[in-house]
């Protein structure tokens, strides 16, 4: 007879797994009423700490070469593949059938590979050389917006989380993510995957807790540059948009079924980019001959 060793689910902030600063916890249950585990009930201060970590990690992550980011993202997929069974078990525990769980994990892995591929390609697609009527070589290119606050889709445990995080970090941003409140297990296990796949600490920070309690902090924090809201509540969208004006955050929400094969797009990467346009003086106007 062996005593089972149960996992303590903690937060993921700055590459560490701390308990919530508030010391609080909650116990989500599955449909049959069985407790899933004791989860940290993150507080505003945890959000603040996560933002600091994300900000600290931003410089290093955004300056990595696109190719290197691509390698690291692919590495996430490799690590997730190696942990298939663990994720399937957690999904089943949270109420999926074995078949659904297997499909969700497969789709998640494929989605990571999809975004890994885009890392060093989206810039070519979206950037441009612009015709101007003065003696300038004028070009626009994408730069990451900064720290992104993500309220992950609440109806899935893994695929929604992955679909929200990946386009953001593929584009060189860092983020903090509030996981699904009722089915949060995969989020923290996914943090372990991130932690063992060369993703620098702080690039992705994952919190578990109550959406209603934290949504205002996500929307109003001056050091968050953009918010992705994964839910569908019109009230919440309005609330975020109102509070986001304090520092003119970009607010994005996607009424999309992430479990669909087409719940992925390079345009999602572009949503978390700012455009920088450069006017470079050159000798002649017109561009009939190439001078640059």
């Amino acid at each position: 007879m062996r005593l089972e060793i149960l996992k303590t689910y903690k937060l993921y902030i700055g590459g560490q797994f701390p308990r919530t600063e508030s010391g609080r916890f909650y116990t989500p249950k599955n449909k049959k009423g069985a407790p899933l585990g004791n989860m940290c009930l993150a507080s505003r201060k945890d959000v603040k700490n996560a933002v600091s970590s994300a900000r600290k990690a931003f410089g290093g992550w955004s300056e990595k070469t696109a190719f290197n980011r691509s390698q690291i993202l692919y590495r996430i997929a490799e690590m997730l593949e190696g942990r298939r069974d663990q994720f399937i078990a957690e999904l089943v525990k949270q109420g999926s059938t074995l078949k659904q769980a297997g499909e969700e994990v497969n789709l998640s892995i494929d989605r990571i590979v999809y975004y890994a591929g885009w890392c060093d390609k989206y810039l070519q697609v979206f950037s441009s050389v612009n015709p101007v009527s003065s003696s300038h070589f004028n070009f626009s290119l994408q730069e990451p917006v900064g720290v992104v606050g993500v309220i992950a889709p609440q109806d899935t445990s893994l695929i929604g989380l992955v679909s929200a995080i990946l386009p953001i970090i593929a584009g060189g941003n860092t983020c903090l993510v509030l996981a699904s409140e009722n089915i949060p297990l995969c989020s923290i296990t996914f943090a372990e995957v991130l932690n063992s796949s060369d993703v620098p600490g702080g690039v992705v920070n994952i919190l578990t807790g109550n959406e209603k309690e934290l949504i205002e902090t996500f929307a109003s924090h001056m050091d968050i540059n953009s918010v992705l809201y994964g839910g569908a509540s019109k009230e919440n969208i309005q609330l975020i948009q109102e509070l986001a004006v304090v520092n003119v955050k970009r607010v994005h929400y996607y009424p999309m079924n992430w479990s669909n094969e087409d719940g992925q797009s390079v345009y999602l990467i572009n949503d978390f980019q700012e455009i920088k346009t450069t006017w470079h003086p050159i000798e002649n106007i017109g561009g009939s001959s190439s001078v640059y």
Binding site: R44, V47, K48, V51, R55, T217, S220, H221, M222, D223, V246, N247
Partner: peptide
């Protein structure tokens, strides 16, 4: 202000 601040400002 009740709002977490950013070093940017």
């Amino acid at each position: 202000t009740g709002v977490y601040q950013s070093p940017d400002y």
